[in-house]
Design a protein around this nucleic acid. Sequence first.
DNA 1: GTCCATGCAAATTGTTTGCACCCGG
DNA 2: CCGGGTGCAAACAATTTGCATGGAC
Lengths: 147, 147
Amino acid sequence: MTIKEKKERLRRFIKEKGLKATWQRDFVVDTFFKTNIHLTAEELYLKVRKKKPEIGFTTVWRALKLLSQTGLATERVFVDGLTRYEQTTIDGHHDHIICLNCGRIAEFENKKIENLQRLVANELDFEVVSHRMELYGYCKECRNNKT
Amino acid sequence: MTIKEKKERLRRFIKEKGLKATWQRDFVVDTFFKTNIHLTAEELYLKVRKKKPEIGFTTVWRALKLLSQTGLATERVFVDGLTRYEQTTIDGHHDHIICLNCGRIAEFENKKIENLQRLVANELDFEVVSHRMELYGYCKECRNNKT
DNA sequence: GTCCATGCAAATTGTTTGCACCCGG
DNA sequence: CCGGGTGCAAACAATTTGCATGGAC
């Protein structure tokens, strides 16, 4: 899905809900779409504020909540306990691998693991509807520059 | 590890650290050890308070922190964002499967999945040191009593 | 003009800490 | 007695909400 399509989808959602379009929210959403990493509301707010200091934290926060509702963003909480927002990609589910040193977050998908998960669940008489899996470790760069 | 052994281990740890034994902490730890489910500090506090209303939340909380330091308990945060404390079992690492309806938490271990994780990480040039994996779904009972 | 959006400030929630008093050794 | 333990209350941090004002249609 291109950014243009995402914006269109959001525009339709806003219309359906009887909400109004505003340049503030537009700007926040734009900034978010142009960033392809996992951001906290705080981080996005700081990013936005650099360009438009008149936009408040609440607006950024509510824009992210709106994007979550629309399905254009996903809230994720990693072990640091902060809520991060991730742009929804066209390809469905994926998991994360996070560098404990630099905080870099990479994404991956592995059907074999998901099949095994379903298998394990069956053994325990559970029906899986979702899962969360994160790997923590060190990326190449951080391994090389070890202290 | 039996409860007795755990208590012994804690006793030694307390001595080493130059801390003191008190009946309040003893009672909290006892209550925790007798419960084999995943509890939040709040839940344990309520449990304790029923028997000993004079014990405060702080004591419960600090006892759990102490147990974590000792390695006798493990802090876990699932998707609801609450910190739960789990008794450390003799067998090392395991993951969780959680019923979205009744909240029941079951544990499992699967070496195949862990091997695949390492494999995936290698492809991405990461070195894995830990992971978090939780499956969410419905347990047998909740599937049968579906609304 | 009518509502929704905004952004400040304040409430909330879960967790953690400061401190005066208590109590075990 | 002394030093750590307790438990209240208050600090904290992240998130969420109330409300008066402003702006889009």
